[in-house]
Computed example of a mutant assay.
Amino acid sequence: MEQKKTVVVTGFEPFGEHAVNASWVAVQELKKLGLGPAVNLHVTEVPVEYEAVQNLLPSLWDQYKPQLVVHVGVSGMATTVTLEKCGQNQGYSRPDNCHSCPKSGCCVEGGPDCIDSAIDMDLVCKSVNNSDLGVSISVSEDAGRYLCDYTYYVSLYLGKGRSAFVHVPPLGKPYSAEQLAQALRAVILKMLDLLEHSTEVQHCQHSH
């Protein structure tokens, strides 16, 4: 019998103008949908705090030993479900919910400037856009140098590239929580499929 895969999906707590964080609402909806009988899905809410991320992420990787960790964040500028290709190590000066930011301005001192996901986001995007989901998917190479980008980099570093970051638009702009959850489900199942066929981690090839 094939062993079940383990996937951890995170959303963020409210911050700034996002009194309700669409990412966590969508992740809770995804939990109701599930990822099918072959996948153990664990979801968790991430504080919008750099230090909390540094403490939480290693424990998620250690505790669940997941095949894949997918972080979901909200972007007020997004109008599509956006797949982030890479995480950046430096440039973190925007204060978090506790009004603090990393002293060094980076995620992992001495880490590479940029880490690419082991997953080909262009392929995931194309595949899901070709299905009749009714939710538009796009890709991005800049996760924004705030908690989203920070979380993504730390997770890519810990998980040797077996991590993904998905930005979702605020609720109702234009998608409902249910639609976002359906999109996340489709995207994550495709990512798992691709991960089975690739194990190499690449450092960033493109110029920023």
Rank of each mutant, 00 (worst) to 15 (best):
S100W: 03
P112K: 14
G144P: 07
N130H: 06
T151N: 01
S127W: 08
G110P: 10
V128D: 09
D113N: 14
C101G: 12
G134V: 03
A143L: 05
D149H: 01
Y92V: 00
N130I: 03
P102K: 09
Y157R: 15
G111K: 00
S131T: 12
Q90G: 14
Y146M: 09
G111P: 01
K126Y: 06
I137A: 14
G87N: 00
K126T: 11
I119Q: 07
M121H: 08
N130L: 09
C148H: 02
G87D: 00
S140G: 10
P102C: 09
D120F: 02
D149G: 01
Y153W: 08
D120E: 09
S100A: 11
I137R: 12
L147D: 01
Y150G: 01
P95H: 01
N89R: 03
L147T: 04
S117W: 05
P112G: 13
S104N: 09
N89T: 03
P102L: 08
D120T: 04
G144T: 07
Y157T: 13
N129P: 12
Q90V: 10
D120L: 05
S138G: 14
S136G: 12
P95N: 04
S127I: 10
D116M: 15
V124G: 07
G91V: 02
L123I: 09
C148Q: 05
V124A: 11
C106F: 03
K103V: 15
P102S: 12
Q90M: 11
V108L: 05
S131F: 02
A118T: 10
D149A: 01
V139N: 09
T151M: 00
P102V: 07
S136Y: 10
N129S: 12
N89D: 03
L123D: 06
Y153E: 09
S117R: 10
C101R: 15
G134M: 02
L147P: 03
D96K: 02
D142Y: 14
V124M: 08
D116P: 11
K126V: 07
C98N: 15
D116E: 13
S131H: 06
S93R: 13
S136L: 12
K126D: 12
R94G: 04
P102H: 08
V139I: 13
C125T: 08
D120Q: 06
S100R: 13
K126I: 06
D132E: 08
A143D: 06
S100M: 08
C101Q: 14
G87A: 00
Y92Q: 00
Y153H: 07
C107W: 00
E141G: 14
D116R: 14
D142N: 15
C148E: 06
E141S: 15
C101I: 08
R145F: 05
G111S: 03
C114P: 06
H99V: 05
Y92C: 00
G144R: 09
V108T: 05
L156V: 00
Q90W: 08
G134E: 03
G111N: 01
G105R: 04
I137D: 12
Q90E: 13
M121E: 09
D120H: 04
V154L: 12
M121Q: 13
N130P: 01
T151I: 01
D132A: 13
